[in-house]
Amino acid sequence: MDVDLRKLRYFVAVAEELHFGRAAERLHIAQPVLSRQIRALEDELRAELLRRDHRGTELTAVGEQLLEDARPLLASAEALVRRVADAATGVPTLTIGFMPGITVTAEVRALTARRPGLGVRLLRTSWDDQVEVLRDGRADVSVVRLPVDQQGLEVRPLFQEPRVVMLPVGHRLAGKQAVTVSDLAAEHLLQDPEAVPEWRDVALELRRADRPGNPPIRHVEEKLELVAAGAGVCVLPLSTAGFYPRPDVVAVPVEDIGPSQVCLAWTAVRRSPLIRDFVEIALALARQNRPDGGRGAAG
């Protein structure tokens, strides 16, 4: 049996929203059309995927399994379309993702010198999408910061760099040579706690300090605006802090937070010689140019 990717895409929208109306708006289709497509998918799979009653919409166990499997399948389909479109131009192209604070200038120069005529695209990523861009084909290879979901990926370490806490210039700790996580126990963390696992280990005071209803801030610029306003603190790799100098925010080393691990990542099924060349060059440059403060992957 062939699976209709369009129906799968519709299902994922409903499964993520758990609301047919919102999913229909997201997909730009009428709600009755969406309902018919979901019923058709259930008929094809001979399984109930969603339950709807007066309390709302919920996934069945089968629906949860389908959602888990459908996301990577749809991402692979998107990646296929993107790579075919690139190949149709007749110009070999490599798209490189990179996180804030990381530079890939030297790698790109070395790669284009090795492969004249190669088109190189650069894609700035974020904490949320640094792996997603590989899975859906927006990037061929990416310089990522751990931790990431490594399932289906090849990952090679490049270097480590220290992390610092960003504080408003008038903060009580702003003049310190270094601080500990315990020193920051009363502060509100303006980022996903998964990015700073040590934060969770300092008893319950940290969690009480978090303000319920405030989602983590995703972009560096927004975090620094909020830090400057006294709304909280954030922990950044030293190179990222160096890319965003501000007179109203200071960076202070944190003694008991581990370094930021920077790695190369690409999907394991790819056998592209362009990816192979870029990885070879990046690893060689990383060995030559160990980061010292604000230096990124290119040194």
Rank of each mutant, 00 (worst) to 15 (best):
Arg218Leu: 02
Arg200Val: 01
Val262Lys: 05
Val269Lys: 06
Gln177Asn: 04
Val249Asp: 09
Asp183Leu: 00
Pro216Gly: 06
Ile217Ser: 08
Thr240Arg: 05
Leu226Thr: 11
Asp192His: 12
Ile257Trp: 00
Val220Ala: 03
Val269Phe: 12
Trp199Val: 06
Leu224Ile: 14
Gly230Cys: 08
Cys263Tyr: 05
Lys176Asn: 14
Ala268Lys: 10
Ala185Trp: 04
Cys263Pro: 11
Leu226Gly: 08
Leu236Glu: 13
Val250Asn: 00
Gly230Val: 11
Glu221His: 14
Val220His: 11
Asp256Leu: 00
Gln177Ser: 04
Val220Gly: 08
Asp256Trp: 02
Leu264Asn: 01
Gly258Ala: 06
Ala268Cys: 05
Ile217Met: 12
Gly213Ala: 07
Pro215Glu: 10
Asp192Pro: 05
His219Lys: 09
Glu221Thr: 15
Val179His: 03
Glu205Ala: 15
Val269Pro: 09
Ala174His: 08
Ser260Ile: 01
Ala195Asn: 09
Ala203Ile: 06
Gly175Leu: 09
Arg200Asp: 07
Pro212Phe: 04
Pro237Ile: 13
Asp256Ser: 00
Pro237Gln: 10
Ala241Cys: 14
Ser182Lys: 06
Leu189Asp: 08
Glu221Ile: 12
Glu221Ser: 14
Leu264Gly: 04
Ile257Lys: 01
Trp199Glu: 11
Ala268Phe: 08
Val179Phe: 09
Arg208His: 14
Ala178Gly: 00
Pro216Thr: 04
Val181Tyr: 02
Asn214Leu: 14
Asp183His: 07
Leu190Phe: 14
Gly213Cys: 08
Ser182Ile: 00
Ala251Pro: 14
Ala251Cys: 13
